[in-house]
Amino acid sequence: MLFDTWYDLLRILAMGVAAYVALLLLLRVSGKRTLSKLNAFDFVITVALGSTLATVLLSSTVSLAEGLLALALLVALQWGVAFASSRSRRVERLVKTEPALLYRQGFLTGAMRRERVTADELRQAARASGHADLEEVAAVVLETDGTLSVLTSAPASLQGAPQPGDDPA
């Protein structure tokens, strides 16, 4: 079936415009941090916002007011958590992870196991950053947002000092 009624199509059009404008305003007021990808918590909020917007658009059982309240609630919660984590080390540790060194002059297998990352994934990250193999790489770090950073020269903090997760030789 192509569609049920013209009303359904017009409802989606009206709800879509209203919800989209409201979401843009909420995101503008709440700041850039709301849709950042600094950690897994940020990613979850971004997905939840998209899911909520889709529900507002497609579910005839959700009113515009309910959908806007849900969007505002998610944005407010994200703002609150970001505000609290920027002022409290305890809250920051609760919602954020630390970067993990996975490769430095060889694979750090203990850290790789803890982070559930394979050697092939590290090799892929090296190739994606333009390096034929890991011999050209000083270090690979799993960042708090889940991306792999490939460093071509070791930062001063990594030069010479053993790091957590180093396997004894």
Score class of each variant (00 low, 15 high):
residue 108 L to S: 02
residue 36 S to N: 10
residue 53 L to N: 02
residue 61 T to N: 10
residue 145 D to W: 02
residue 135 E to D: 14
residue 89 R to V: 14
residue 33 R to V: 00
residue 35 L to H: 03
residue 153 S to N: 03
residue 154 A to P: 08
residue 91 V to E: 00
residue 7 Y to I: 13
residue 45 I to R: 01
residue 20 Y to K: 00
residue 126 A to P: 04
residue 127 R to A: 13
residue 37 K to P: 04
residue 137 V to M: 05
residue 1 M to K: 04
residue 35 L to K: 01
residue 64 L to Q: 03
residue 147 T to M: 09
residue 89 R to I: 10
residue 107 F to D: 01
residue 106 G to L: 10
residue 103 Y to L: 08
residue 67 G to L: 06
residue 109 T to I: 08
residue 24 L to R: 04
residue 37 K to D: 13
residue 128 A to Q: 14
residue 137 V to F: 02
residue 71 L to S: 03
residue 29 V to L: 15
residue 16 G to E: 06
residue 166 D to K: 05
residue 34 T to E: 04
residue 65 A to E: 09
residue 155 P to V: 10
residue 27 L to N: 02
residue 82 A to V: 10
residue 166 D to H: 10
residue 72 A to M: 09
residue 126 A to V: 14
residue 168 P to T: 04
residue 60 S to L: 09
residue 73 L to T: 15
residue 63 S to A: 05
residue 82 A to Q: 07
residue 37 K to M: 14
residue 134 L to S: 02
residue 127 R to W: 10
residue 31 G to P: 13
residue 113 R to P: 03
residue 35 L to S: 03
residue 129 S to T: 15
residue 165 G to W: 05
residue 93 R to L: 15
residue 82 A to E: 12
residue 129 S to R: 13
residue 60 S to A: 10
residue 12 I to T: 09
residue 104 R to C: 03
residue 101 L to T: 06
residue 116 R to G: 00
residue 46 T to P: 02
residue 23 L to K: 02
residue 107 F to I: 11
residue 58 L to M: 14
residue 46 T to F: 08
residue 136 E to K: 13
residue 104 R to V: 11
residue 36 S to M: 06
residue 37 K to W: 09
residue 84 A to G: 06
residue 118 T to R: 04
residue 4 D to S: 13
residue 134 L to G: 00
residue 133 D to M: 08
residue 150 V to Q: 01
residue 133 D to F: 05
residue 57 L to M: 12
residue 138 A to E: 07
residue 25 L to Q: 02
residue 149 S to N: 10
residue 50 G to Q: 09
residue 133 D to E: 09
residue 18 A to P: 01
residue 25 L to W: 10
residue 84 A to D: 06
residue 130 G to V: 12
residue 44 V to N: 00
residue 81 V to C: 06
residue 4 D to K: 06
residue 40 A to I: 08
residue 63 S to G: 11
residue 64 L to Y: 07
residue 105 Q to H: 12
residue 112 M to H: 03
residue 165 G to R: 05
residue 118 T to N: 00
residue 94 L to C: 11
residue 115 E to R: 07
residue 69 L to T: 09
residue 140 V to N: 03
residue 97 T to Y: 03
residue 11 R to K: 05
residue 65 A to Q: 08
residue 124 Q to N: 11
residue 137 V to Y: 03
residue 165 G to Q: 07
residue 28 R to P: 01
residue 110 G to Y: 03
residue 93 R to G: 02
residue 14 A to I: 14
residue 43 F to V: 08
